[in-house]
Design a binder for these strands. Sequence first.
RNA 1: GCACCGAUGGCGAAGUGGCUAACGCGCUGGUCUGCAAAACCAGUAUUCGUGGGUUCAAUUCCCACUCGGUGCUCCA
Length: 493
Amino acid sequence: MELFNTLGGKVETLEPAGAPELRMYCCGPTVYDYGHIGNFRTFLHVDVLRRFMRQLGVPVKYVMNVTDVDDKIIRNAAAAGKPIAEYTAKYEKAFFEDSDALGIERSEIVAHATSCIPDMVVMIEKLASRDIAYQTEDGSWYFRIARFPEYGKLSRKDFEGIEDGARVDIDEYEKDAARDFALWKACKPGEQSWTTALGCGRPGWHIECSAMAMKFLGESIDLHCGGEDLMFPHHENEIAQSESASGKAFARHWMHVRFLLVEGRKMSKSEGNFYTLRDLLLKGHRASAIRFLLISVPYRHQMNFTFDSLTESTNAIERLRTFHQRMMKGPWPESTASGEASLTEAIGEARTKYTAALANDLNTAEARAAIFDMVRVVNSAADAGTLTKKNADEVLEVLNLFDGVFAVLKDNDAEITRAALAWAEAEGRLDEAAPELLTNFALSDADIDALVAERTQAKKARNFARADAIRNDLLAKGILIEDSKDGVRWRRK
RNA sequence: GCACCGAUGGCGAAGUGGCUAACGCGCUGGUCUGCAAAACCAGUAUUCGUGGGUUCAAUUCCCACUCGGUGCUCCA
């Protein structure tokens, strides 16, 4: 597996060192609100990487943190009049529901900042004992960047032109140098705090990742991931703290996922193009299509999220699922006079291309293309009657491989959308749901089955007017009927 | 303002110093169907933001410009 390493700026082999499993850490969510699709693009690509590593036979131990105390949480919880634990519990639950909906596998360990405070304190004390951390008059602790000469090695920034004290935050006037960052924030009245050897206060943001990564994975880890924005200062600060404390390299490999645009513009609330997963589900988009779209553009490219491309993804997945069903259903002849060997070759080629593409810095676009090449060739052979049982089995193997990473073939979409509707109802936000979605889901599966059966009867009686009326009526409600030689099937659009 | 990244067909998007510029969606025509849908077949960029340069050869390398993005401050 070759993966671009931000540290050093080139593609390098990703592999475990000093342990049988790949030890990876990802900066997880700050649970102060619902996650937006940009957040999930990062976690989705990390999921793709993890799934693929396992496919290559590399066991993975993945730790993701949940930041459950920080400035925004304190502010929002106060505004909501709730204790922070109650406030964050709601959004953490939502985050994992959304992750599940998007097919993101849970990490082996979920580390909460508030349950690892003693580990952070120990680390800060260690830094303080060597005067790398210092306390200011208000009781806060800061990291002395002057003591870490390699500062900036990840983001390759030139700090020469940045003068100390040039942009001093009003809160931070006591720092020795402008770039020194907070390890521990002194307690303030009304804010959640912990009384520790460092005094009363709460952890700074950067220290939590260092402490938790090292606690669960050891002082040197194989891979550290996050969104591109975290590169500086967050990851730079993590390196400074961790390496100063341990004297060892912190993470060997750093992966950063680029931001996405929405309709060609930066996603922001003021642009009106800011979307959470739930917003999209309520608009009638499918979870699987969102997953597929967000991972179809390789992680190092800026991707443009558009509603047209979401429709594209929906249709593309439908084609893959139809194909998958077709392969499983058969029946396929045991053998044919010719063609079997060349199909075997084409299928094998798809498999090789798929694996090579992902192994090449996670080129999901090329991996996807290899699968569609196979779909076309195999569908064509199936129509011509030259696809054998052996070929179909080979195809299913490749599809399983593909789906082990892409995870879009199993259709849980209706269930997920139903859950989103239930959530919207509970939150009093059902008015945000698309009207078509409501009419669609107002019909139960049994209702639809009954109408479909009635249409089949009408067709038998050659009453096409009635049959078409039922079909059109269902179509208007977002339900599509398809006739085939083996009967009728329907699906929600 | 300074630094960095990107610009490929109707849309999304891969890729390469030189064979016919992947793949998906869409669209058009055909096969199938009572009609559709699904599936398949065929067609759909002499061309890779603009202008220059290097080279036998550039979409691919270099420079400038335009536009978009990111960092410099909390942010996936």
